[in-house]
Amino acid sequence: MRVDPTLRQALGDGNGFDASSCLNCGSCTALCPLGLELFPRKLFRYALLGARDKLVENTDTVYSCLLCKMCEENCPAGVHITDNVRALRVYLGREVFHLGPRGV
């Protein structure tokens, strides 16, 4: 795992990613209908650590989220989980897929 020190800032400043209050309790993963071990808790951890390669490796997982808010409704720390997932998509869309009006 390589650490990109600019990732956290790029996610936070431009896209509003904020999982700093996450208690790492795992309720979100337990309730998520996707049943993916990594999601969303560990993926947020990667983002907080600046592990850009891990995010890119798990693009499918990021885009699998239903944005259904089942997790968020039950998060004890009030983390805006779906806003964070969208922030990851905005980042991946821009920086990795080059989507958008001026994209490839």
Binding site: P33, L34, Y63, S64, L66, L67, C68, M70, E73
Partner: peptide, 25 residues
Amino acid sequence: GKATQCCGGPIEMLFPKRSNDIAAR
């Protein structure tokens, strides 16, 4: 109500199989 379970619809185009599994459940 607030505890509803998603139908899988939001990922029907990118992940049709995963979406169908969630809908079937």
